[in-house]
Structure formats: C-alpha cells, structure tokens
Amino acid sequence: MMQKAIKRIYMSIVFLFLYAPIIVLIVFSFNKSKSRGQWGGFTFDWYIDLFKDRQIREALYFTILIAVISTLVSTIVGTIAALGISNMTKLGRTIVLNINSLPVLNPDIVTGVALMTLFISMRIELGFVTMLIAHIVFSIPYVILAVLPKLRQMNKHTAEAALDLGATPAYAMRKVIIPEIMPGIISGALIAFTLSIDDFVISFFTAGTSATNLSILIYSMAKRGVKPTINALSTLMFLVVLILMIIINKKNDKGEDIII
C-alpha cells in the first residue's frame, strides 16, 4: 500500500516538473493582465489578437504550407526508399539504414548550419524554397523508419501472390503493396507533419529573411519582449502537436506499428 502511494507521488512530481512550464504557459495565455506575474482575470483577447496580426497570419500560412508540402514529398520519397531498401541484400540494407539514421541522431543545429552553408555555397537564396527543402530532407529518414517495419511484417510472397493472380507489377504495387503498408505510410506522414510544425533550429538557419514560420516568429517576438499573444500562439502550437501525438500513439496501440 505504502509503496504504491510513494510510486504514485513520485510519478506525479515527475510529471508536474515536466508539464509545469506548459501549464503555466496555457494559464497565462488566458490572463487579462499583461504582466507575467499577476492574474488579472480570464480573457480570450490574446487569441483574438493573434488572428488580427498580419505577421502571425503570414507565419501560420508558411508553417502550414511547408508542413503540408514537405509531408507529401517526404512521405512519397521515403516510402519509395523503404521499398527499395527492403529489397536489398542484408549488407546493403545495413549500410543504407545506418546512413539513414545518422541525420536522425545528428544535432539539429549541425543539420541547420550544414544546409545553410550548402545553400549559400550553391548561391541559392535563402527563403521559402530552402526552408521547404530542409524540411523535406530531415523528414525523409523518419518516414523510412516508419514504413520499413510494415514491409518487413508483410509475407515475402505477397507481391508474388498478386502477380500470380494476374496483376501487372504496377497494379500489384497500387492495389496490394501500398495498401498493405498504408498504416506505416500514415504514421510516417504524421511524424513528418509534426516535425515540420515543431521545427525551429533548422528552419532558423535556412529560412533567410523572406519567409518566416511560427517558431521563428515566436523567437523573434520573444527577443523584443514577451507579449501575451506569444503565450496564446504557443498554446495553440502545443495543442496541435499534442493532438497529432495522440493520433500517432493511438495507431501504435492498435499494434499497427513499432515506431517512436
């Protein structure tokens, strides 16, 4: 009994420390007073202000546009890559998978600086396109890691079975292989989308001055002094990511995947 109580208390403290900052953030996004130390009553004003702000609207537009396009492209490229990798010999697969997991483990700042250097050396002007390319690049390895287990779970004769029943290779790919691994592809897409919305460091180095996403905007706003709108914006971003994480984990619970 006692032990159980201690366990519970310990867990609660850990979670409190983890989530206290976010709880404070959320609470203060509804604070009428502009001061960060004082509660001045409940209000939705900051949320309304958010959508009046042209700069924020623009950043939101870029964030979503980049998230959608980079998710689409990285999911397609990553899925094709996974299909190729699964047909490799064991040695080839090991090598490619190790190369694939390096960017995942690489610190974001290194990836960001590296991409920036590459773009500048190739005389590509930093902006929307470079940020988009960067997001596609860092999402692909995650898509591969999400799709591969599904391919491995599949019976190795599944494709042959489709051909055997008269399907051309293209028909078999469209009607059998892709649907069989669809849960993995969706997981991969959700992860890519979350990462893209989430990302600050790599975006910061590749965005230049012409395009700004929400995380960069929040950073620059915070430098000029924290306005309560930042709290509201951060709260909204947190909620979007939270919902995406719940969807991804729900899928995992159903035993459909073994990722993250």
Partner: peptide, 15 residues
C-alpha cells in the same frame, strides 16, 4: 501474371 497457373504460397501470403 500472364501464366495460366495459380499458386498457393507457403504461409498463404493473403492480402
């Protein structure tokens, strides 16, 4: 896919 034979695979390979 053009042969008039069909196969029952090891462990079935159902979709």
């Amino acid at each position: 896919y053009k042969r008039n034979v069909n196969t029952v695979f090891q462990r079935y390979a159902l979709f």
